[in-house]
């Protein structure tokens, strides 16, 4: 088999034959459209459906104005907060799956992955139904409130005033909650795969040497799960940064993210060149994140 693999590298013709179709696909449907949009970002509208690629940098100048820059920064902050919450919530979930009895593990993983098989739009609307002013969350909170009120009358105190539903939707809180809900599986799966590979006797060795559970977690589990943490953060942060549907549906007027601004340029504003410039700024930001991460990974490898 090893010989065959060696030959595979040496024999150019079959290699070219196999590689042509996917390369052609990539060029036709990915590189070419991206290149066109990239060119648009250096153009200006010459008519309702006509773009003059003049090489102007005006779009980028406009995109770096404070109005848009602040939305970039805010998107980044929302994505970062989402990632942090996903990490905090996802780590115990991943640990629970890792340490569960083997017969339960596939079912727990299935539970994590199940939402992937449901359309994002449907999941978002379902969450909105839950969080609306007449949704179950508010009903539940109202029930608790009335219970507390009833308890107060029971002990001879004044009852609480009537329950007013809390506005859970259409604000930044709703956006972050929605993003966490959507992105949690992306965090849990790489964490699980890192923790699953961890030799459990390392944890026992740490306990055996006198460390409690918290110290063992901080000094052994977290450092050894680091590759999974980095992978989970990247795979959560990048899509969260470009989130469009969740802020559009669940956010208020002040919670639009950069993807919503981009969408508006391509549709309502019909300013494709400006939308293209914003898009590419977002892509560059993601490139920088990925580059930083791979630089870090190389450093870790060299240090070994």
């Amino acid at each position: 088999m090893a010989g065959a693999l060696q030959d595979w590298k040496l024999q150019k013709k079959p290699f070219v034959a196999i590689a042509t179709a996917p390369v052609f696909w990539l060029i036709l449907f990915f590189v070419a459209p991206m290149a066109i949009v990239w060119l648009y970002s250096f153009g200006q509208n010459a008519g309702p459906a006509d773009i003059d690629i003049s090489g102007t940098l005006d779009n980028y100048k406009r995109a770096t104005e404070w109005l848009y820059l602040s939305i970039f920064l805010k998107s980044f902050a929302v994505a970062a907060l989402t990632t942090l919450i996903c990490l905090i919530v996802g780590f115990p979930v991943a640990m629970a799956i890792t340490f569960a009895a083997p017969k339960w593990r596939p079912w727990m993983l299935l539970g994590i992955m199940l939402p992937f098989w449901t359309n994002l739009l449907i999941r978002t609307y379902a969450l909105m139904a839950l969080m609306g002013t007449n949704g179950y969350m508010n009903k539940g909170l109202g029930g608790l409130w009335e219970g507390a009120s009833w308890f107060r009358t029971l002990v001879g105190m004044q009852p609480l005033e009537a329950w007013t539903p809390v506005q859970l939707l259409y604000n930044n809180f709703a956006v972050v909650l929605g993003l966490v809900y959507v992105h949690l599986p992306f965090m849990v799966l790489p964490l699980y795969s890192a923790l699953d590979r961890l030799d459990k006797s390392l944890i026992e060795a740490s306990l055996d040497l006198g460390a409690g559970h918290f110290k063992t977690f901080m000094k052994v589990v977290v450092p050894l799960a680091a590759p999974g943490i980095v992978a989970g953060v990247m795979i959560t942060l990048i899509p969260a940064l470009g989130a469009y549907l969740t802020p559009d549906l669940m956010g208020g007027t002040d919670s639009q993210m950069i993807a919503n601004v981009i969408e508006r340029q391509f549709k309502r504003a019909n300013d494709w060149p400006f939308g293209a410039a914003l898009s590419f700024l977002l892509i560059y930001a993601m490139f920088i994140l990925i580059a930083l991460q791979s630089m870090r990974a190389n450093k870790v490898k060299e240090a070994r």
């Binding site: 030799d199 006797s201 390392l202 026992e204 060795a205 306990l207 055996d208 040497l209 052994v220």
Partner: peptide, 17 residues
Amino acid sequence: PNKRPVNMVFQSYAVFP
């Protein structure tokens, strides 16, 4: 285990990598 006056050498050695 972390409070017992015994220590263990594991079969896999469990040296922290």
